[in-house]
Amino acid sequence: SEEKKKAKERLERLGASSELARELLDRANGNAEKAERLLRKLL
């Protein structure tokens, strides 16, 4: 979806690899905010 694509791009801008961004979104069930929080914990 367009929303998921935007979320993935945002995670990548924050420093996630394409693969990591995809994994985070999967774990967050597509929830962009939750995926971002997970990423911030990792960085």
Rank of each mutant, 00 (worst) to 15 (best):
A35F: 03
K8M: 15
E9D: 08
E23W: 15
K34A: 15
S1M: 12
K41N: 12
K6W: 11
A16I: 06
A21N: 01
R37C: 12
K4H: 15
S18N: 08
G15K: 03
E19N: 07
L38K: 03
E36N: 02
L20C: 12
L11V: 02
E33I: 10
R40D: 07
G15F: 04
E19V: 07
S18I: 06
L25P: 00
K34D: 13
E9G: 06
S1P: 11
K4Q: 14
K41Q: 14
S17V: 02
R22V: 14
N29L: 09
S18T: 10
R37Y: 12
K5H: 09
E2H: 12
E9A: 10
L25V: 07
K5R: 13
A21Q: 01
G15I: 03
L38R: 04
R13F: 11
R40L: 15
R40F: 13
E19M: 07
E33G: 07
E33P: 06
K34V: 15
E3S: 12
E23T: 09
R13I: 08
E12Q: 09
R13V: 07
L20H: 02
R10A: 07
L39G: 00
L38T: 05
E3K: 09
A32T: 07
L14S: 02
E23A: 13
R37S: 11
R40A: 11
R40E: 10
K8Y: 15
K8Q: 15
E23V: 12
S17L: 05
K5Q: 13
E23M: 13
G15L: 05
K34G: 07
G30S: 03
S1D: 14
L24I: 06
R10D: 05
G30T: 01
S18W: 06
E9N: 08
A7G: 08
G30D: 06
A28S: 08
E23D: 12
S1F: 12
S1G: 12
R27S: 06
A7M: 08
R13D: 07
L43V: 06
L42R: 04
N31S: 07
A32F: 15
L42C: 07
L42V: 06
R13M: 12
E2Y: 11
A21I: 07
L42Q: 05
G15E: 01
